[in-house]
């Protein structure tokens, strides 16, 4: 029955995301009507509305779409590879690793888009390998991996915090970066991250059968001829690429990588051929909607999107935990 639902769910997710993106372009302190939007898109940044659209709204909307896609797909992949549906780049500390790397970059004044993206990617990857290495070394259970990730998460956050105190001139790392925010997104930072995200997504979409075979369990996958360790590494590198790229411009946006894959799986099942695209589309729409709500609901105050997300995500995480206790085979 989940199979038959797929096209409908995909289409709905796509339409919702499209509409969210349109609203995200039009709504804000200065409203832009659809006809003005059309003109400004055609004529470029000539009018004041065109200027707002091209230099403020478009980078911001693109950032929402990109980070939503990246974090959701990264979460889905990490959950499949670790065989743990409580895992996500935010929870096991991958985002924090990327965040620490970005903080170090800023502390040394390395602020170009490519440097920050690359650093975030490396930070995310090192964290992933630290967790996987620790898990394999100790033969840790699935819960231990999560707990280890949580420990690493707080350690990395503390290091970032200490750096920000020691280098007060790190202007960009305001509290907004800690919680995740799109208000300071620029195209120069977005483009390198966007390229990384596009490349990782393209590769992941072609490897969906591999990801499904890996989810059958290490021994079965090996029996089917998969070089399990190598493929696991490939998937984790790609997931780190996605999370790192997102952190480089959006900060430490939590919960997206947990919430969206969960909802998507509930709707259409775990078949990666459909799950990954749905996570990409749905994640993009979800983050755009949250950002839209965060900056319009309490206008003229603008909430950091991460705050709103934590308000939704915290209870959701609890809900998932409580449901697991019911002993569901798939949870």
């Amino acid at each position: 029955m989940k199979n038959k639902r797929r096209p409908v769910v995909m289409l709905c997710a796509f339409i919702i995301t499209l509409i969210s993106a349109l609203f995200s372009l039009c709504l804000g302190a200065a409203r832009i009507s659809l006809s003005e939007l059309y003109n400004a898109l055609l004529n470029g940044p000539v009018s004041s509305q065109g200027y707002i659209l091209w230099y403020v709204r478009m980078p911001r909307t693109a950032a929402c779409l990109l980070s939503g896609m990246a974090l959701s797909v990264s979460g889905a992949v990490i959950q499949a590879v670790l065989n743990n549906k409580l895992a996500s780049p935010g929870i096991i500390g991958v985002n924090s690793g990327a965040g620490l790397a970005v903080t170090i970059c800023c502390a040394f004044g390395l602020l170009s888009g490519w440097t920050v993206s690359a650093a975030a990617f490396i930070g995310a990857m090192l964290t992933v390998f630290l967790i996987v290495f620790a898990a394999q070394k100790t033969g840790a259970s699935r819960t231990t991996v999560i707990l280890g990730g949580v420990a690493i998460n707080s350690l990395l956050n503390a290091l970032s915090e200490a750096l920000t105190t020691l280098f007060p001139e790190i202007a960009m790392l305001s509290s907004d970066f800690r919680i995740g925010d799109f208000s300071s997104v620029t195209a120069s930072r977005l483009i390198p991250a966007g390229i990384l995200i596009a490349a990782a997504l393209a590769l992941l979409f072609t490897l969906s059968n591999d990801l499904d075979v890996l989810s059958l369990g290490e021994d079965t996958a090996r029996g089917l001829g998969m070089p399990v360790r190598r493929m696991r590494t490939v998937f984790l590198v790609l997931a780190a690429m996605l999370a790192g790229a997102s952190v480089s411009f959006a900060g430490l946006l939590g919960f997206v990588g947990l919430l969206v894959p969960h909802a998507a799986r509930k709707l259409i099942g775990s078949d990666s051929r459909y799950l990954l695209p749905l996570c990409a589309i749905g994640g993009a729409g979800f983050v755009t909607l949250c950002d839209l709500a965060a900056r319009t609901l309490f206008a003229p105050y603008e909430l950091a999107v991460g705050i709103l997300m934590a308000v939704i995500g915290g209870p959701f995480f609890l809900f998932v935990l409580l449901k697991r206790k019911g002993g569901h085979a798939d949870a």
Partner: peptide
């Protein structure tokens, strides 16, 4: 090869 420990994949 069919291992002893088989998951019930979704």
């Amino acid at each position: 090869y069919l291992p002893q420990d088989r998951r019930i994949p979704d």
